[in-house]
Amino acid sequence: MILAAEEALVAQNIFFGLIAAGTIFGALRVVTTKNVVHAALWLVLVLAGVGANFLLVGAEFTGVTQVLVYIGAIVVLFLFGTMLTRSPIGRDEDVDNPAWYLGLIVAVPLLALLSYAVWDQWGDDHIDSLTPAAAQTTADVSDSIFSTYLVAFEAIGFLLTAALIGAIVLARKE
């Protein structure tokens, strides 16, 4: 029914379906694969899919940032982490908890509950901000960051500095 909704946006809906399928498949592989490096690579697929979703709703800047920061920096960080901790690069039979079923017990009801709540609340609401007039440009985003959310922005800057220092303090050798 997602695909059949509106003629004008058929293409977008098809793409959304493809992207969503890829993202979910990638996410499932991230949490099931036995190989840590493969997990990181599957994560790239998920992050790219999320970035593509951002592009679909017209959030170009956020989408680009997603790709740059997540895929460019964070995944690389993960790969470094894997190497530095000398985790087995190949398959590893020991990556799951003995009590892995606990995760299922929690996650499945959570998914059911979230889906029900979302469906119940926003049944047929549309996103219709894709007309050129209502599009949110990068300039709008930056205006908002540097006026309305300036204090939050400063706080984030502070947080990043603190995290940087903290990471160095934690990771350096005595």
Binding site: G103, I105, V106, P109, L113, A117
Partner: peptide
Amino acid sequence: VQQYGALLFGGAVVLAGIFV
């Protein structure tokens, strides 16, 4: 920690269920 996490998320699900 993961058992604690499971209890935490499980509790949150139950609470959210009550709210919903």
